[in-house]
Write a protein that binds this DNA or RNA. Structure first.
Lengths: 340, 340
DNA sequence: TTTATTAAAGCAATCGGTTGCATAACAATT
DNA sequence: AATTGTTATGCAACCGATTGCTTTAATAAA
C-alpha cells in the first residue's frame, strides 16, 4: 500500500512552500517559469496526482458533469455518451452517468444523487413520463446550469439540443406518400415527450399538405416496445381498411411490427411501406432493411458537453442561446422503396 | 444562489458542537438518541446535505466505484449497469461509468481517469484486445480492489464473475448436433478474450464428443460486426461443402449473417440451423427468431457491485473467492428448430 | 545612495466533515 | 466521602489544495 504524494512532499524535497508548488502546477503567472519546470518534473518523477477532493473542497467546484439519460442500451445513446466523454475528458471534466429507465421516479432519485455529488452542471434527456422540470429546482436555485438534449421540455434559461422532429416526421411521412401510400398509420410513444409529439405533428402536417385525411384509428400511442409492435400488427389485421404505409417513431418497434405483419402474409414494401426512426443498427440487418431517420449522436453529445463547459468557463451564456438544432437525414432502404 | 448549509450552521442553531452534529448524523453510538433525533430533524428542515468532498478528504475514501465496460450500447450491458446502480445506490456508493469502445488504448486512458478520481474500487469488463492487467498495477499497489466481470483475465487476488462459456458453447453446439447438423461452423471474436476462447473450446469439445471432426475452415475469427456477418455468409456460399449449422458468438452478427444467407436462398433452419449468443432483443424480432444463449445481466451487475462493496466494508475477502459462476440458459427459437 | 517598482515566493487562513482524546455531569460502588 | 464507571459532549488537529495578503530580493529609476 503506497502512500499518496502531496504537494507538501514535493515542497519539502525542493525546499519550497506548498503554495508555490500549487501555483506552479496550475501554471500561475507569478511563478518563475524555470521553477515551474523543476516542480513539474519532480511531480512527475514522484508520481504526484492532485487530490481532487481537497481541490474541490477549496474551490467549491467539482469538475464533474452529471448525465441523466432514459436508457443506456441504445446505439444512439452510446454514441451520444462517447461524444460527451470525449469533450469532457479534453476539458478535464468527469462524467457521472445514470439512467432513469424511463421512470420519472427514478429520474428524481438520480437528480438527488447528482445534487449530492455537487456536479457543476447537468446534461439531461428526459424520461418518457416526465411532465415538468420542478425536480431540477434545487439546481436552478443554486445557479447550476443544465442542458437538455433530445428529449426536452422548453424552458427559459435552459438550452435545448434537438433535431427538428416536426420536420423529420413530415419528411418521413412525405416519403411514404411519395411511394404511393394513401393511408398511413403512425405508431409513436408518449406524447408528453417532445420527440413523439413533434413527430406526430409533422406526420399530420404532411398528410394535410398532401390532401390526405388523418383518422384517429391511424395514430397509435404506445410504449414502442417489441410487444407494442406485435400488437399493432395484430390490430392492423383487424382493420376494415388497413393502412398501406407505416411510420413508427422507433426502429426497434418498427422492426417487430414489420416481422409480425410479414408473418401474417403482408408484403413489405408493396402492401405496406414502413419507415422507422433513429437508424438503430437493427435497421440494417433486418430483411427488408428499414428506411429510417438518422441523426448524429456523437455530435449531439459533443455539442451538449461543449456548450455546458463553455458556460461553466464563462465563455457562453446558456440562457441566451436557447435551442440548438442539429441536422438529420432520411435514409431510404428497402422497407419503403417501391418499384413504381 | 443559495448557500450550502453546513454542520456548523446546524451546530450554532442548536448550541452544540460540530463534532456532535457530525457524529449524530453518522449515527455514532456515543450520541444521545434524543439528540440525534433533534439534529436529524433540524438538518432536514434546513436542507442540509453532507459535503462529500470534505468527508472524502478526511476519510480518505470516496464512496465511488469506477466501472469500465467495452460498450454501453448493448441491452446486456445496460441491464448489468442497472443492477450495479441499484446495489450501489442502496449502499450509498456512486458510480463513474466509462466505455473503452473495445480499444485497449482507451481502456488505459479510462483507467487513469478512474485512478485520479480515487475510486474505492473497480468493476471492469475488458476491451477485446486487452492482453494483460498491467495497466491496473497502480490500483493493485494501492490495494484498491477490482472485480472483473464477463470479459475477464484470470489473476490471483482478483475475483471474476462469469458464466461457464465453455459449457455454454458446448451446449449451443450440441443443440445444433441434436437438430441433425453434421458440419457446424463457428464464428467468433478475438480469442484473446476469454468469452470467445471459451466458447470456441466448448464448440470443439462438443464436436469431439459427438464424433464429428472440426476443420480450420469452419472456424472464423472476426470482430463480430454486421459486416463480418455478411462477409461470412458470402464465404459460406463459396465453400465446396458448406456447413449445415452455424454457431455465432454474438446475436447481432448472427442476425446479419442469417439475413445475407436467406437472401442468397439458403433456408433457415432447414438448410442451415443457427444459434447466437447473448439473447439480444434483436433475437426475438428477427424472422426466423434466433436461438441463443441467455444470461442474467442484472444479476451479474448486482453480484459484482455487492461483492465489491462487501469487500470494501470488510465483510468479504475478494482474494479468497476467486471465480463466481452464474447460470445461463439455452433459449431455443425458430432459427434452429427443425421439424425432424 | 535612496526610493520606487517588479518579480517571485511564503504565510496562514480556508473549505467542511471527522475523530482521538479530554472533560463534565451524574450515577453507582465501596 | 472518595473512588470508579458511564454517558454525552466538546476541543482541536487533521485531510490536501488554494489564495489573499505580505515579505523578500532584485532591478530600475530618481
Amino acid at each position: 500500500m503506497e502512500k499518496d504524494v502531496t504537494i507538501y512532499d514535493i515542497a519539502k524535497l525542493l525546499q519550497l512552500s506548498p503554495a508555490t508548488v500549487s501555483r506552479a502546477l496550475n501554471d500561475h503567472p507569478a511563478i518563475n517559469s524555470n521553477t515551474k519546470v523543476i516542480i513539474a518534473s519532480k511531480a512527475k518523477e514522484m508520481g504526484y496526482r492532485s487530490n481532487m477532493f481537497a481541490s474541490n473542497l477549496r474551490r467549491q467546484r467539482t469538475s464533474t458533469i452529471g448525465v441523466i439519460v432514459p436508457r443506456l442500451d441504445s446505439a444512439f445513446m452510446s454514441t451520444v455518451l462517447a461524444g460527451m466523454e470525449k469533450v469532457a475528458n479534453e476539458a478535464n471534466y468527469n462524467l457521472i452517468i445514470s439512467q432513469s429507465l424511463e421512470s420519472f421516479k427514478k429520474e428524481v432519485a438520480n437528480t438527488k444523487t447528482m445534487f449530492d455529488s455537487r456536479v457543476d452542471g447537468l446534461l439531461v434527456s428526459l424520461a418518457s413520463d416526465t411532465e415538468n422540470l420542478d425536480h431540477f429546482n434545487t439546481f436552478f436555485r443554486k445557479g447550476i446550469p443544465m442542458i437538455l438534449f433530445d428529449r426536452v421540455i422548453e424552458q427559459k434559461n435552459c438550452t435545448n439540443i434537438v433535431i427538428d422532429n416536426v420536420k423529420a416526421g413530415y419528411e418521413a411521412t412525405a416519403h411514404l406518400i411519395d411511394q404511393g401510400c394513401r393511408r398511413i398509420m403512425h405508431i409513436t410513444g408518449s406524447i408528453k415527450r417532445n420527440v413523439y409529439a413533434d413527430r406526430l405533428k409533422g406526420y399530420r402536417l404532411a398528410l394535410m399538405d398532401h390532401g390526405l385525411e388523418g383518422a384517429d384509428e391511424l395514430v397509435k400511442i404506445t410504449n414502442l416496445t417489441r410487444e407494442d409492435g406485435v400488437q399493432a400488427a395484430a390490430d392492423i389485421q383487424q382493420m376494415n381498411s388497413p393502412p398501406d404505409g407505416l411510420f413508427v417513431a422507433s426502429d426497434f418497434c418498427a422492426v417487430s411490427c414489420m416481422g409480425a405483419l410479414m408473418q401474417a402474409g403482408v408484403s413489405i414494401p408493396d402492401d405496406m411501406a414502413v419507415v422507422g426512426f433513429n437508424d438503430d443498427p437493427v435497421a440494417q440487418v433486418i430483411q427488408p432493411s428499414l428506411t429510417t431517420i438518422h441523426y448524429p449522436g456523437q455530435e449531439m453529445g459533443e455539442i451538449a458537453a461543449q456548450s455546458l463547459i463553455n458556460h461553466l468557463n464563462g465563455l457562453l451564456r446558456i440562457n441566451t442561446t436557447n435551442t440548438i438544432l442539429l441536422n438529420y437525414e432520411l435514409i431510404v432502404r428497402k422497407s419503403s422503396q417501391r418499384h413504381l
